[in-house]
């Protein structure tokens, strides 16, 4: 545990430094994830890392750096941009890709964006369907990716708890929860027919707490939106809605300055903030210890219908 500033690796190998790593739970999770990243990079023709800018993506990216060090990350990053991501996320994304020297691809469902798709004009379900799921499937198809890493964790949501580490998708990119390949030990079946693909979740066994502790332990940069700050918010009872897109405001509604932060990052119209004083990583961890709601409770899209995440996943969503 150190509080030293971010260590920048030049990519050079420094010989002679010798130490022993303790195998605590974070090291065990790290070792498992690195093994997965290396397997995928070696067994698939054209893998890609879905980089969504959030804390989980930040951890996944660091694990990729570790997996292939001192060689560069052998696959590109792809961001599915709905057009509703926070401006800070986009700036961070571009900075981060440059920082790690990775190729960054951005994919947007331009026709849907041009048609004015948004969660209020449509409902959240159809909005996600077009701007996220459709965009993702199109992007994967366009580049011919046969494996895509995602930062999803099994502890996030009930249907994700059943997801394999290698999650098989048929030719239409869809998930069949009743017909998943058995996954034993650390032996992953990477075989697919043309058109089929595998979504890979190297952080499957990490919890939200593990992710934050690892970010702390490894000094991994994350987007500023996670840290508490005075921010303009539409205050609707318990709900704080960030002022980012004009169309979310109710007629006559005025934003207020609230010391707040985001617990998970999504599209601004559908991501509520929480009142918080946590302006550091230990502060966030301390706050988590006192939390009584799960991290996705503020994500509107998970609650739009019973079993909604499972339905989205069947259709091809991460």
């Amino acid at each position: 545990m150190s509080g030293t500033p971010v260590e920048v690796h030049s990519g050079e190998v420094s010989a002679g430094v010798t130490r022993t790593l303790r195998t605590n739970h974070l090291r065990l999770l790290e070792a498992e994830s690195i093994h997965i990243l290396r397997e995928v990079a070696s067994e698939f023709e054209r893998p890609v890392m879905l980089y969504s800018v959030g804390k989980d993506s930040s951890v996944m990216l660091r694990l990729a750096q570790k997996a292939f060090f001192p060689a560069p990350i052998p696959f590109p990053l792809m961001h599915i941009d709905t057009g509703f991501k926070f401006a800070e996320m986009i700036a961070f994304r571009d900075w981060m890709a440059k920082e790690v020297g990775a190729e960054l691809l951005v994919w947007r469902n331009e026709p849907a964006i041009a048609a004015g798709t948004n969660p209020i004009a449509l409902d959240t379900k159809r909005c996600c369907g077009l701007l996220k799921t459709q965009a993702l499937l199109d992007g994967l198809k366009h580049y011919g990716f046969d494996a895509a890493f995602g930062g999803a964790r099994r502890d996030e949501e009930k249907s994700r708890a059943k997801e394999r580490i290698y999650s098989f998708r048929d030719g239409a990119g869809q998930w069949d929860p009743k017909n998943q390949r058995p996954e034993l030990w650390n032996l992953y079946n990477a075989r697919v027919h043309p058109g089929e693909s595998i979504r890979v979740f190297p952080l499957s066994n990490w919890t939200e707490m593990d992710v934050w502790q690892y970010i702390h332990q490894e000094n991994i940069p994350v987007v500023d939106l996670y840290f508490a700050k005075e921010r303009p918010m539409y205050v609707r009872g318990e709900t704080l809605l960030p002022v980012e897109q004009a169309f979310v405001a109710w007629p006559g509604e005025k934003p207020q300055m609230v010391k707040s932060r985001l617990r998970s990052l999504g599209c601004s119209p559908c991501t509520g903030a929480i009142r918080s004083d946590a302006d550091s990583i230990p502060g966030i961890i301390a706050e988590m210890l006192s939390f009584r709601s799960s991290e996705r409770a503020n994500r509107v899209i998970d609650h739009d219908q019973e079993g909604s995440m499972e339905l989205k996943k069947r259709e091809g969503y991460f």
């Binding site: 509080g3 500033p5 971010v6 961070f92 900075w95 702390h216 000094n219 991994i220 940069p221 994350v222 987007v223 500023d224 840290f227 302006d279 550091s280 990583i281 230990p282 502060g283």
Partner: peptide
Amino acid sequence: MSEIAAVQE
């Protein structure tokens, strides 16, 4: 970008 410096607090 991050507030790592605040770790010591």
